[in-house]
């Protein structure tokens, strides 16, 4: 398991755990970032902000958020 911030760009992962303060994690969950949701990173800046694609939507996420979401690589069968 790695943090979202460390993923390879344009590769599919699934969300494993959200390790954020309650109010932020509730917001992310409401936006559809839940356990098992597929997530693809589109670009990443050195500052740690990223653009990700989730449930057909693009979201820009700041460093604090990207470094506290754990993801798992999807292994092609």
């Amino acid at each position: 398991m790695i943090s979202l911030w460390e993923v390879e760009i344009k590769k599919e992962y699934t969300v494993e755990r959200i390790l954020l303060e309650n109010n932020i994690s509730r917001r992310l969950e409401a936006l559809g970032i839940n356990e098992g949701t597929p997530i693809v990173a589109l670009t990443r800046k050195r500052s740690g902000a990223m653009i990700v694609k989730i449930r057909g939507t693009r979201l820009a996420l700041g460093r604090h958020i990207t470094s506290n979401i754990e993801v798992k690589e999807v292994i092609a069968v």
Partner: peptide, 10 residues
């Protein structure tokens, strides 16, 4: 404050 940028990109 922590960097909590969270915005949808249409």
């Amino acid at each position: 404050g922590k960097n909590n940028l969270l915005i949808e990109l249409p």
